[in-house]
């Protein structure tokens, strides 16, 4: 593949995953998976239960150390970052990869606004002379805090939670909590936003709002979106690029249209008879 033929994610990738493998004891959860995530795309990672999606995700976001493989984040703002060499918090602080969690992890006893302020910790901390300086009036914490509040306000507006800024995050409804988690991740000003099943548990209306939000993030912010999703309607509607895993291996990679018609994918999702499987194996 070269020239005009090349896909957008191969031409202009933000994240390149090469030969990623992950073993737990004797079990191989991810087996030699390679793909690229485009910097202007919404990329979806799909696959049946137990396909290894979450493991790939946790390797990228630093919660697991991969057994083998290279995860390179393209370095527009400096040298490329090798994610597998960074420790957990550096993935966000240094490589600017943010994530959300499948079972929402907010700070339930803090207000919505406080949640977004915590997300801007590193910048604020430097501006306040690592906090202890600010006790003695060092640093320019006042200005930085105003800017942080403005950013928080902007994202609260984007996710429609501005009226609830002073409520405890734990008291929000489920759908609001999901959107707040995305807003919180965006407040770290990420280059790559990783979402772990963002539509899980949402009703149709909330799901639509989520699609709009993700498209807005792709189009207006300098942030690529990478998500795991079960809900095919979401995936097919908003993704630019779909990667399919099954039993820890990549079985398809392409635009939603290409993937939808791929016999491997259909087999993986619907199950196949033995003869069909043999026929599939025989294909190039």
């Amino acid at each position: 593949m070269s020239g005009a033929d090349a896909k957008s994610w191969d031409r202009d990738p933000i994240l390149t995953v090469e030969h990623l493998s992950m073993h737990f004891g004797g079990i191989t959860a991810v087996d030699d998976v390679s793909f690229a995530v485009g910097c202007k795309d919404i990329t979806a990672l799909i696959g049946p239960n137990g396909a290894g999606k979450t493991t790939v995700f946790n390797c990228i976001t630093g919660f697991y150390k991969p057994t083998e493989g290279m995860l390179t984040l393209d370095g527009k703002d400096g040298p490329p970052r090798f994610l597998e060499r960074l420790t957990d918090y550096e993935i966000n602080a240094d490589a600017r990869v943010a994530r959300t969690f499948q079972n929402i992890r907010l700070f339930p006893g803090m207000t919505v606004l406080e949640n977004l302020m915590v997300a801007q910790h590193n910048g604020l901390s430097r501006a306040s002379g690592f906090s202890f300086g600010a006790i003695f009036g060092l640093g320019r914490f006042g200005i930085a805090e105003k800017e942080a509040i403005d950013l928080a306000r902007y994202w609260l507006g984007q996710v429609g939670l501005l009226p609830r800024a002073d409520e405890a995050a734990g008291s929000l409804a489920y759908g609001d909590q999901r959107r707040l988690e995305i807003a919180r991740a965006m407040c770290t000003r990420p280059r790559l936003l990783c979402l772990d099943e963002p539509a899980a548990g949402l009703n149709a209306k909330e799901s639509d709002a989520l699609n709009t939000l993700l498209q807005a993030i792709r189009d207006k912010e300098d942030t690529a979106v990478f998500l795991i999703e079960h809900d095919m309607s979401v995936v097919m509607r908003i993704s630019d690029h779909v990667i399919v895993l099954d039993y820890g291996k990549k079985i398809a990679d392409g635009t939603p249209g290409e993937v939808r018609n791929d016999p491997h994918v259909i087999a993986a999702y619907l199950g196949v008879s033995d003869e069909d499987a043999a026929a599939l194996e025989a294909r190039p």
């Binding site: 966000n92 994530r99 910790h121 202890f132």
Partner: peptide
């Protein structure tokens, strides 16, 4: 005072959810 500064908020956030803290670069 510290409660209203970044480090104090990070302390409380850590009490609430340490994993989320790390995912936010703390």
């Amino acid at each position: 005072r510290l409660r209203r500064l970044p480090v104090g908020r990070a302390w409380e956030a850590m009490r609430e959810d340490e994993i989320a803290c790390r995912s936010l670069g703390i």
